[in-house]
Amino acid sequence: MAIDEQENEPKTSLGRLTRRSFLSHVGAATAATAIAPLASSSASAEGAPTEAASTKIPGTVPITLRVNGQSHAVQIDPRATLLDTLRETLHLTGTKKGCDHGQCGACTVHLNERRINSCLALAVMQQNAEIITIEGIGGLETLHPMQDAFVEHDGFQCGYCTSGQIMSAVAMVKEPWGKTDADVREAMSGNICRCGAYPNIVAAVQAVRRMS
């Protein structure tokens, strides 16, 4: 006596399970899984931000930096240097990263009217300081006299060290150095130019010093 194949097929709460019904259920489950995140993100966009979006990065601290006359509230790693915070967090990329060891001067900025290597300063320690970067001393329409002098005297070639050179030179003019070219070279010795534009840099600095 022949056995009906359908009688041997397993049954579920949805009825008799066939190959067609199994594939149908799997397809419906897959579609639901794919659509659920989209529906969730759509609801989040219309309502309050999701918890993940509002969660702060573990290990960071809130600080406020005053840069170029503006206050910036940021969340940073407490180990972050002022250089990296300026470039990566505030997106002020005029300050360049050269050696990252305080030896080339490409990262020179002004901190409370004094020039420093920003790669050697922790950002978290500068909350009450007035920080000036190359973006803060002049723009395309109103160049700082030192920027004008660097252009006039060809005080740069590749330009990578130029922002640090200019920031150091602006500070140096206000410092008690002698009047000779040798004095300028000594005062600017912390700023390295791989292209070797030193004679033109000295000429630019001296031109500004004669104006003041």
Score class of each variant (00 low, 15 high):
A80V: 07
A106D: 02
S118T: 09
F156N: 00
G139H: 13
A123P: 05
I76Y: 01
V61M: 14
S118Q: 06
G102M: 08
S71P: 02
T81H: 05
T133Y: 03
V109R: 01
K97Y: 08
N117A: 10
S118F: 04
N128D: 14
C107W: 01
L120N: 07
G159P: 06
T64G: 13
F150S: 00
M146E: 03
E130K: 11
L82A: 05
G98H: 02
I132D: 01
G69Y: 11
T89N: 15
G159L: 03
V109H: 02
N128C: 07
T93Y: 01
I132C: 05
A149G: 04
D84I: 07
Q126H: 10
L82Q: 03
P62R: 12
T95G: 04
Q70F: 10
I134Y: 00
C158D: 02
T60M: 11
H91W: 07
L143G: 04
D100T: 11
N68P: 12
K96M: 07
Q70G: 05
D154W: 11
I134R: 01
H91N: 15
G139W: 07
H144M: 07
T108P: 03
H110P: 05
L92Q: 09
A129P: 01
N117I: 08
L140S: 14
E135I: 11
L120M: 14
V151F: 11
I76K: 03
D154Y: 11
L92T: 02
Q147R: 08
H101L: 14
Y160I: 00
E141Y: 13
P62Q: 08
L65Q: 04
G102P: 05
T60H: 14
T95M: 04
C107D: 09
G155W: 00
E130W: 00
T108F: 05
L92S: 06
L120C: 12
A73I: 03
S163M: 06
D148A: 10
T85K: 06
Q103T: 15
E135L: 12
A149T: 05
K97D: 11
D148P: 02
T142E: 15
V124P: 03
I131S: 00
M125E: 14
C104S: 13
Q75F: 04
G136H: 04
L65D: 03
R87I: 05
N68Q: 12
A73H: 13
D148Q: 14
I131F: 00
P62W: 09
L90Q: 09
V151H: 13
H153C: 07
N112I: 10
H153D: 08
I131Q: 00
S163E: 05
I63V: 15
C158P: 02
I116A: 06
F156I: 00
F150T: 00
L65H: 06
G139L: 13
G136I: 06
G69I: 09
G102T: 09
S163N: 14
P78R: 09
A123W: 00
F150N: 00
T162C: 03
I116K: 04
T162M: 01
E130R: 13
L65P: 01
E135M: 12
N112V: 06
H110F: 04
Q126T: 07
N68M: 10
G136F: 05
L65Y: 03
L122C: 15
G138H: 09
R66G: 13
Y160M: 01
L86Y: 02
L140M: 14
L83N: 03
P145G: 10
I116E: 04
G136M: 06
D148E: 15
A73F: 04
V124F: 07
N68V: 08
N117E: 12
A80H: 08
R115Y: 10
V151D: 11
